Simulated scan of single mutants.
Amino acid sequence: MAFGDQPAYLRVADDLRKKIAAGELPPHARLPSQARIREEYGVSDTVALEARKVLMAEGLVEGRSGSGTYVRAQPVPRRLVRTGFHAAGESTPFRQEQADDRIIGTWESGSEQEEAGPEIAERLSIEPGDRVMRTRYVFRAAGEPVMLSTSWEPFAVTGRTPVMLPEEGPLAGRGVVERMAALDLVVDNVAEEVGARPGRAEEVLALGGVPGHAVLVISRTFFAGGRPVETADVVVLAERYRIAYHLPVK
Rank of each mutant, 00 (worst) to 15 (best):
K53V: 12
D5C: 10
E58Q: 15
R174E: 15
S111P: 00
M164Y: 08
S219Q: 12
L25A: 09
P128N: 09
V210S: 07
V229M: 01
E58M: 10
R123E: 05
E230T: 12
P128S: 08
G110V: 15
R220P: 08
E24Y: 06
Y41Q: 07
V190W: 00
W152M: 04
K19G: 08
N189F: 06
L205H: 04
M133A: 10
V71T: 08
S33D: 13
S91E: 14
D100E: 09
G66H: 04
E239H: 12
R52K: 15
M180S: 02
V157W: 00
P154W: 00
F155I: 04
V194W: 01
D188E: 05
P27Y: 04
P75E: 08
G195I: 12
L171V: 08
D15Q: 13
R227T: 13
R11E: 11
V12T: 08
E39K: 13
F222D: 02
P154K: 02
P162Y: 03
D130Y: 04
E24N: 10
L10D: 11
Y241F: 15
A8E: 14
E203Y: 01
A35H: 12
V47K: 00
P166F: 06
E168H: 11
E192Y: 03
L49R: 14
K53R: 14
S219D: 14
S125G: 05
L183E: 01
Y137H: 07
L49I: 11
G169W: 03
G209K: 01
Y70N: 05
P166D: 03
T106Q: 03
E168C: 07
D45F: 11
G117I: 04
P162T: 07
T158M: 00
R123S: 08
R134I: 11
S149W: 00
A13W: 02
L25N: 05
A87R: 15
Y70M: 07
G169F: 02
R134F: 09
A99Q: 07
A2C: 08
A116M: 04
V12Q: 01
E115H: 12
E202R: 12
A238S: 11
H246G: 08
V204W: 00
R82G: 04
F94D: 03
E178Q: 10
E62S: 14
G226H: 02
R82E: 11
A29L: 07
R197C: 11
F222V: 08
E108N: 13
R79N: 12
L205N: 01
M1R: 15
L183W: 00
L171K: 10
I103G: 01
R160F: 09
E230Q: 12
P7V: 13
I120R: 04
K53G: 14
V163G: 02
R30T: 12
P26S: 07
V47H: 00
A29K: 09
G173T: 05
R242V: 15
A182T: 05
H86S: 13
E97A: 15
S65M: 07
G143Q: 04
V81R: 06
G208N: 03
